[in-house]
Amino acid sequence: MVFSSTTHSLSALHPAKFNYNYNNVEKLKYSGVQYSSGLGHLMYDLFKNAKDIAISKKNLLCLTEVKDLTNVFDDVMEEYDIGRINGAFLLKTQDGRYLKHFNNTICVGGAGTNMVVSIVPIGDNIVELYIDDQTRLEVDTKYPYTVFPSRIILSPTKQYRQQFELDYFDGKITLKAKTADGDRFLSYGVDKTLRAVGVMLDYTSINPYIFVPEFITPSNIVVGFEPKTTEVQYFNELETFKNRYNLNIKSEKYSDTNLLATCTLNDVVDNDNSNINIALLKTNYTSTGTYVPLH
């Protein structure tokens, strides 16, 4: 019998990478280690303390220990603040005076109704500010860079005048505009008219440019999914006809199970990231098909 053998150094072994792909690409939690011998290793939390792993019929199968899914997936909840999402708010100064629209001028305090500002993100924290469905705030080309309402759609080379860099954190907001003199923050001087003339030093606010938004819409959204294996018990109230279709959650108890992770070998070899499937096993089932009593 003739056979050939190929020798691979440890550094020639590439750690396989896995993703769970259901609604989106849900990233698995892992960390990497590089040993001095040249071997690299990606330690997936999914595989930690695995009960068994095997290759069978071109498939990779791994039986895990009883695991909480929150330990398997990476941080899957992502928060998007205003500036990256649309939203609307009233804008006021730190001493509580609202921005108002009066006679084609944006003023701080005084007569007029409080100005509702709608944020339309067009880039990473670059936004357009609408005060009604067709009117945007625009910065004058010339000093003192007065901010005024505009219904004109500018050419692409001039659109920067209707775009602002928004920085929102912890209930405070700054808006920065591009001007001929460089970046300037929106603020107001002694005439209380909104212009790109903000001046704040260390502890001195000459023309304060930090505003406080009073949100009409949510200030942020959290997207992602919440991985968990829970035993949920429902009940519906049959006493009244009105509620007969309403199901209410009676209780929700965490019930971790063993997991079976599988993927094809071809997928592992051919792709940088392999799609892995994770199945919950009936760890907590009794032989009669009911859940084991929880403690």
């Binding site: 072994l13 590439h14 896995f18 330690m43 792993i53 290759i55 070998l265 071809n266 070899v269």
Partner: peptide
């Protein structure tokens, strides 16, 4: 364990209590 595919090899192994999967 290891297994050949049309384009490469997959190896599964153990480092301490951790399971690893590699490919060539």
């Amino acid at each position: 364990q290891s297994d050949l595919t049309d384009t490469g090899t997959v190896l599964v192994g153990q480092i301490g209590k951790d399971v690893g999967v590699w490919k060539t």
